[in-house]
């Protein structure tokens, strides 16, 4: 699963994009009943003010809704619900937390180290951010999986801002067309970047979409600011 690895953008554009996730080693003795530990991992994360979190099986902190009530349309909320993630986690799987600032991510990782949960924890971000997290927590990196980027794709891809938004769901659930539509809505003044980002976030099925970064990208797209892409 490389869903957090291949995000489109320059190293600078990942400065506010740090994903920390935990998962048990399948089939390993001693790792079988990981749900309470994963729950603890997410409980601790809530204290550090993440911008999203999620359960790979049941979804993120902002999900699509299934309303039966005709009037429910007017009561849809765009706020992430972290308690819903904790309430609905049913099976041991990958649990992810997204931070939009490095100090919070560093403090969270240090706390997780101190708690000694015994579960594998990975951080997916720029190499520089990961280094700073390890340094702060006094950790030595065990392994790394580099993304070699999207460099060879050339003109197979549409506009850069739309790709930056759509690749924030590495499972590909956010389409380029929808990302482009939301950019157009923001440009036309029909939606705020926050509302447009929330619409996109609902499609991410495991809670790794970074709404803060999405708002920044939508703001850049609104004024036509180009992103220096060096992927």
């Amino acid at each position: 699963m490389t869903n957090t690895l291949h995000r489109f953008g320059s190293a600078e554009s990942f400065s506010d994009d740090i994903i920390v996730f935990a998962l048990p080693a399948l089939g390993k003795s001693g790792q079988e009943d990981a749900l309470p530990v994963l729950r603890r991992f997410l409980q601790i994360a809530v204290e550090y003010g993440p911008c999203n979190m999620g359960d790979a099986r049941n979804g993120g902190a902002l999900r699509s809704t299934r309303f039966k009530n005709f009037f429910a349309h007017w009561f849809k909320r765009n706020k992430p619900d972290f308690q819903q993630v904790l309430r609905t986690m049913t099976k041991s799987t990958t649990m992810s937390v997204v931070f939009d600032n490095l100090p919070a991510a560093q403090a969270f990782i240090k706390r997780i180290k101190d708690e000694d949960l015994g579960i594998s924890v990975n951080v997916s971000t720029s190499l520089a951010n990961a280094s700073r997290c390890c340094e702060y927590a006094g950790l030595v990196r065990h392994s790394m999986n580099y993304s070699l980027g999207f460099g060879s794709m050339g003109d197979k891809l549409p506009g850069q801002h739309a790709v930056m938004l759509s690749t924030m769901c590495g499972h590909g659930m956010i389409s380029h067309s929808f990302a482009k539509k939301m950019i157009d809505f923001v440009k036309e003044g029909r939606r705020s970047p926050e509302d447009a980002a929330a619409s996109l976030q609902r499609f991410c099925s495991c809670g790794i979409f970074n709404k803060s970064r999405a708002c920044r990208i939508l703001e850049d797209a609104r004024i036509g600011a180009s992103e220096s892409i060096n992927s």
């Binding site: 291949h6 995000r7 320059s10 080693a25 180290k113 015994g118 594998s120 997916s124 990961a130 065990h142």
Partner: peptide, 14 residues
């Protein structure tokens, strides 16, 4: 520029 970094926190027993 980007990577997933395993922090090496896994232990045999949770």
């Amino acid at each position: 520029m980007r990577a997933k970094t395993n922090l090496g926190l896994g232990r045999i027993n949770l």
